[in-house]
């Protein structure tokens, strides 16, 4: 009896030891797979997203050998849905970092992935159902518009005539315009005109030429995106108009940040909506697994003005954007 008990104790101790070493070994080679699904590089900003995602993939894999990051790009909402299906069919996903093309169309497919227990990080565009996501990382589009508007109101002394160029009809564009117009409406500044130029340099050039032809005096122009701003500047220079005191964009494109650094008088500031937010999201997701650092919640990046003093913090000379 006694011996027997001793035997079982020894045996169970041994079992526990085996089990313990087993889990230890498991923790050591535990492989975590993080899938990253982002839009393909179809214009400047998404080009930046792809660049920063690839950079972060290499850095995270180098820092945490047990984490495998898979970056997948998609050229449309439907393509992204297919990519999600492929990713979850061929891999055991521990986490999914997704920058959805559109909120509504991607909500269902992401919910599917989440139902198998995958940790979901949503970047930039929120899903229709917020309960699906574990972590939300985004820039503040309303602040992008509002901060620019506040700066402009102050510089123009609260009055003047301005024109605005919109991007592609989306939530992002709506929020920026909303943030901007709400601030402008409280001043005596008049918005002469507001039209879509689809975040496209050529269309921005054309639209600005038309604005310049239509209005003899324009104190400032807000292009809402730095890609469009470059087209706007070319049109203003060609017309030789000196009444345009300020021409502002947004997003923090490297060419425009260079202008800010050099102290350009017409474009002295920009507002960040950095594509590198994908890297923030990937690092935070990796920390959830590698460091057991709790990362559930919402994380909203500020949109502080980029000025000559802080421009170097926003400058990535190797990024395509």
């Amino acid at each position: 009896m006694k011996l027997d008990r001793l035997g079982t104790t020894a045996m169970s101790a041994a079992l526990v030891a085996v089990a313990l070493s087993g889990t230890a070994a498991l923790a050591q080679d535990a492989e975590f797979t993080i899938a990253v699904s982002i839009p393909a590089a179809t214009h400047g900003w998404t080009g930046g997203v792809v660049y920063h995602a690839e950079q972060a993939e290499q850095q995270i894999e180098a820092a945490y050998p047990n984490i495998d990051v898979i970056v997948s790009t998609a050229s449309s909402a439907t393509a992204q849905v297919s990519a999600l299906e492929d990713l979850s069919a061929t891999n055991e996903l521990d986490a999914l970092v997704i920058l959805p093309f559109t909120s509504e169309e991607l909500t269902g497919p992401v919910e599917q992935v989440a139902s198998t227990g995958t940790f979901i990080t949503v970047v930039d565009r929120g899903l229709s159902d917020e309960s699906i996501q574990d972590l939300y990382v985004a820039g503040d589009n309303i602040a992008v518009g509002a901060n620019t508007a506040e700066w402009l109101v102050e510089q123009l002394g609260g009055e003047g005539e301005i024109v605005v160029l919109r991007g592609i009809p989306t939530v992002i564009d709506d929020e920026r315009i909303q943030g901007f117009t709400e601030v402008i409406e409280q001043s005596n500044i008049e918005i002469l005109d507001i039209q879509y130029a689809n975040w496209n340099q050529d269309e921005a050039f054309t639209l600005m030429q038309d604005y310049l032809g239509k209005y003899p005096n324009i104190d400032a122009v807000w292009a809402n995106d730095d890609d469009m701003l470059l087209g706007v500047l070319e049109a203003v220079d060609m017309a030789g108009r000196t009444d345009v005191k300020y021409a502002l964009g947004g997003n923090g494109m490297k060419q425009v940040i260079e202008m800010v650094m050099e102290g350009d008088e017409r474009t002295p500031i920009s507002t960040p909506y950095p594509p590198s937010m994908i890297a923030s999201a990937m690092y935070m997701t990796a920390a959830q697994f590698a460091g057991q650092a709790p990362m559930r919640g919402s994380f909203l990046l500020d949109a502080p003005l980029i000025t000559p003093e802080n421009a170097d913090q926003f400058y990535f000379p190797d990024s395509p954007f």
Partner: peptide
């Protein structure tokens, strides 16, 4: 062209 510009721009 997307590949040549890395999705950004080629000046």
């Amino acid at each position: 062209i997307t590949w040549m510009t890395d999705g950004g721009s080629l000046s």
